[in-house]
Design a protein around this nucleic acid. Structure first.
Lengths: 188, 188, 188, 188
DNA sequence: TATGAATGAGCGTTCATTCAT
DNA sequence: TATGAATGAACGCTCATTCAT
């Protein structure tokens, strides 16, 4: 049974399946067949939308990182509270606690450490300018002083968390606690 | 011409070549043949030292990260000065400025962003406990106060730098400058 | 924009485009998509006119060879002069000198040696009976004697030229010169 | 069971199998698998000896044409008799009558008209210089006069035969008869 | 220890062809 | 008649891995 779809919809469908499969198996071990099978579509179709496996991988990662970063940035862009409070009130820049969320599953697949890291770095990259702007906003409003180089501060705030999040000896909650405490005590 | 070698020496030779090739081409595109050719040795030989391509990759990455982290940790382990001054006096945790150094070449190959990141993360992972201990040492000696969770502080110090180092719009010197300034102004 | 056309016109349009593309890329590397794109038509449409790629190829080659042979035969069928003079006065059985002619372009595409040869052989095949009849006519009119087997003579006259035309070390004019001289001196 | 062979031997083995398979099925329909199976060897091995299917095809055709032309040229290079007699005494430049010969089988496979023609043209190409030299030799020895351009004469002698050999309405013997008669009556 | 020819599984990719619209 | 998204079979090719020497 042949199912046609609007081009953009199909594209996104492929991206989602690709992300899932790449995440679960890793780039190397994931095959285009896997992805096609996952959607229930012929392999050839994927090549109407993406030039190659490599291109699909890049696109899937970007697409997903974009969405994650967008969601995470939502809260930060809220202009009412100071950055510090945002951080304190946001469970984590990255971690999503709900076990059933799409994200959670994505971020905990087996054998996918490499992809997890790549994804996290891509998200971090997108988060930095958002945080930087938030810092700049705080400076404007006088909620913050003594920040010479907001971009670098943002970089440390965002990437620094990775040092905690990438640890494999802590639970999700522990990670969040540590990050919160650190932010409370050490920043500003 | 058949050249035999002491086992350990051969092993290291393979690891070095592997690191180089993986770095230049990425894991996927690098072939065992490439690596063998690079040393001037038969493909089969590599399998006497490593069980599989995957194992070789892991070993090469670990081996290299270990060496990098070791070198970088050298300075930090010096007990005389405070951590802050160590950071200020160390060109960078990661960046190696000498254009001709082996490392420099390694860290600037084409198409190797993925490996570069993986490597950096591995180095960071190893650096965190070293920095943590240095912080603990500073606390002992009273050179530092107000640090509740030295491990998390170390994580932010180390991984935070990645946010600057991974930027592609700055030169090496600019990156180092920003990191130094940030450490001077914002830490403690 | 959907353009409908008289069936025969469409058919010929496809044949022309097909010949062009097959010629330029060779049978294998030419795709139905290339041909469809060339006309600005959907791939599927081609299958309303031809059963398969193979059938299209055969038809295109035949069609084109037919037209070429027809043109070349025009002069030969003229009953006034002897065959020998026809040959001497015809630039060449195959060669078309006008750089801008459709044929010229067709016969000089890159990577198309195979198709060029197939086409030439097809043209030759069609030319033989025409030349044979001309020889028979000359015999009837007493302009020629001593020809036992006009068909074989025709075959040698036509295919013999290929030995010159297929050479890659001569220009078009040189080829024609050699053929003319040979006909003048060696035939009859 | 793994069988190693001297490199040149293996190469030739592949070339032979390739020629056979390409001949029987045509370039397109022949697969590397077919060829490998034919030798009883892994497909991958073929790629140690030839870069691609296309390269293998070209090499196989050249190799086989070379051998055919070499054999056919043998007789012609014999300096004792005049070219005309050589032709008359050689069954045909191309046709080999023995039903069991390798060549016969090669030249009569189904669906291989295209390859047959390509092969014949390649053989013809190689035969021309040999015949040209024979003509030049005849001229030297005074066995021949009135030949201005031996190369072109040779081309007509060799390629002209193709016009007869490619006919599908004659048996092998009929073809040879016609060629012989033509040579007897019309040449010189 | 070392070689490198040989293996063979498997993957990315292509494309002729179909079919719902 | 025309479209072009979708199919799916098949193929070239690669390469990690093995093994006889």
């Amino acid at each position: 049974m042949r199912v046609s779809r609007a081009s953009e919809e199909r594209r996104q469908e492929i991206l989602d399946a690709a992300m899932q499969v790449f995440y679960l198996k890793g780039y190397e071990k994931a095959t285009i067949r896997d992805i096609a099978l996952d959607i229930g579509v012929a392999q050839g179709l994927i090549y109407r939308y993406f030039k190659s496996k490599e291109a699909l991988f890049a696109a899937a990662l970007d697409n997903y990182a974009e969405r994650l970063a967008g969601e995470m940035g939502q809260e930060i862009r809220n202009d009412e509270t100071a950055l510090r409070d945002k951080i304190l009130n946001t469970p984590s820049f990255y971690h999503i606690e709900d076990d059933d969320s799409y994200y959670y599953k994505m971020l905990n697949g087996p054998d996918s450490k490499g992809i997890y890291q790549q994804l996290s770095l891509k998200v971090a990259e997108r988060l930095v300018p958002i945080v930087r702007d938030a810092i700049a906003g705080d400076l404007d409003k006088g909620r913050l002083t003594c920040v010479e180089d907001p971009e670098t501060v943002a970089a440390f705030c965002v990437y620094g968390q990775l040092g905690v999040l990438f640890r494999e000896d802590l639970s999700g909650n522990q990670k969040v606690d540590r990050i919160r405490k650190f932010v409370s005590n050490q920043i500003y």
